[in-house]
Simulated scan of single mutants.
Amino acid sequence: MEYNKNNFEENKKYNVKAIMAVLLFGDFLSLFNESILNVALPVLIEEMHVTATTIQWLATGYVLIVAILIPITAFLIHSLNINPQFLSAMILFLAGILFAVFSTSFTTLLISRIIQATGTGMIIPIMMNTALVINPPEKRASAMGLYVCAILVAPALGAIVSGTISLFFNWQSLFIMMIPLSLISIITVAMFLENVTVLTKPKVYIFMLLNKLK
């Protein structure tokens, strides 16, 4: 991705504040969701009749999928437009949440968490890359500061809020509360997120990589 003065002159037509707000909200939701099940793990152990080691995959699997998707999405950013990518990520995220609400076993709940994590792993690199594109050099530090705050605060806040809700409701309610918020994010993404990046269509030479690994 090239960052030059001409790009910033062209980006003046974009609503930077709206794009930043949409990205920040979607990122906050996905990272908030990362930790909402942590406080409910003891309850899930009893309800789903699994061991503590097994139930930990609901948290570990989420982080693992996110880690895998981040570099993959970094490649896709240069091949596909931002709006459909981010929209697809949020729809996947919502689909995983809906699947979790109706999960009755550990396996189905784990699959739902993997689907959610797929969306999260796409959202993070899209957010950061877009913020760098739409902001001039002197404002990038502030933009990254906002997103780092979301990355740090959202998981901590997720544990606090979910712990409070779990005192009064069942674990499914943790996902139910995410449904309207996710719908709001999807609608705002469709309305305000514009395709601000330049597609370079990079190629991955898989066979060359495999030969180097031998």
Rank of each mutant, 00 (worst) to 15 (best):
E2G: 06
K5M: 08
N6D: 11
F8E: 09
K12A: 12
K13F: 05
K17P: 01
A18D: 10
M20Y: 02
V22P: 01
L23V: 05
F25T: 10
G26R: 05
D27W: 05
F28W: 08
N33E: 10
E34L: 08
S35G: 00
N38R: 09
N38P: 01
A40E: 05
L41I: 12
P42Q: 10
V43Y: 12
V43I: 15
E46H: 13
M48H: 02
T51I: 09
L58W: 01
A59G: 12
T60V: 15
T60H: 08
G61M: 02
G61S: 05
Y62K: 01
I72H: 10
A74V: 10
F75P: 06
I77P: 01
N81A: 12
I82G: 00
P84Q: 06
P84D: 07
F86P: 04
A89P: 04
A89D: 10
A89T: 07
L98K: 08
F99D: 04
F99P: 00
A100F: 07
F102T: 14
S103N: 11
S103A: 15
T104V: 11
F106S: 05
T107N: 14
T108K: 07
L109Y: 03
R113V: 07
R113L: 06
I114S: 10
Q116I: 13
T118Q: 02
G119P: 07
G121S: 09
G121P: 07
M122Q: 02
I123V: 13
P125S: 09
A131D: 01
L132I: 08
N135F: 06
P136M: 07
P137A: 03
A143V: 14
A143P: 06
A143F: 06
Y147A: 13
C149D: 05
C149Q: 11
I151V: 15
I151R: 04
V153T: 14
A154K: 02
P155K: 02
L157E: 06
I160Y: 13
V161C: 03
L167H: 14
W171C: 01
L174D: 02
F175S: 07
I176R: 09
I176E: 11
M177T: 10
M178I: 12
P180N: 02
L181E: 01
L181C: 09
L181D: 03
S185H: 06
I186N: 00
T188R: 09
A190K: 15
M191S: 12
E194P: 07
E194A: 14
T197C: 06
L199V: 08
L199I: 15
T200Y: 00
T200K: 11
K201M: 13
P202N: 11
K203M: 08
V204E: 04
F207R: 14
L209N: 15
L210D: 03
K212E: 13
K214I: 09
K214L: 09
